[in-house]
Amino acid sequence: MSREDRLGWGLVAPALLWTAAFFVLPFLAMLALSFAHMEGREVVHGFSFGNYVKAFGDWSQLKALVNSIEITLTVTVLSVLLAWPLAATIAWSVPPRWQRAALLAAILPFWTSYVVRSYSWALVLGKTGVLNRGFGLIGLGPYEMASTRFATVIGFTHFFVMLLTLTIYANLVQLSPNYLRAAQDLGASRLRAFVHVILPLTLPGIVTGAFVTFTLCIGDYITPQILGGNNELTLPQLIMLQMGRGGNFPMASALSVILMAVVTLAYAACARWLRLDRL
């Protein structure tokens, strides 16, 4: 091994050790636990697929995974659709000296507690909340919005639009306006130039933000717990249900491994465009 190689390994070693100690080893422990089972209230270590069979074979368990994926995909798509125009407006329409202030305003809600924000949405969307009162003034409603999937999606989207705005903005400000001018000089309409030139060039920012959104959203327990009214379970809620009084850690581990597998699949699907250095 050359001196340069040794130096490289030496520099990388702390990060590798950190990852091994705080990610790889805990994950292996969780994976091993997922094959254990409960006898009474005792965890019996062994190698059984029983937890996975139950997770995929029992519809009430599998539905939690389906719910999680449906909600996460909805939130991710909605967040991208809302964040892109917001980021574009900040990058292209706001004078450069005001862009920092505009970005700051966009991420202001990050400064409040996540839990407080979720409870605030529950109050806004409630039967006597701000929205329904507003609808009442124009003779509409009241609508049942709280304790629904709609409320969960709203709470998530509010949070992740801010995150996606940052990643897409970071991508957009690096784009030279000459790309758009060149496309239009060559006869492309504004729509065609957007679809074939601008959008592909901002894809890394979109996909990076979308992947982070997907990962954080599918693993979140707080928002569906507060805003969803437990009218449908998501996977993190099902995991928590195993932990509370019953202490079924093997089942909770199996469900967590499944959650990680879904995130890994999402990563594989996005890997081509992912630019995590943009975060």
Binding site: E232, L241, R245, G246, N248
Partner: peptide, 13 residues
């Protein structure tokens, strides 16, 4: 306890 929890999960979903 496990049967109760399974019934509860079924009820929620």
């Amino acid at each position: 306890d496990t049967a109760m929890q399974d019934l509860w999960t079924e009820m929620l979903n």
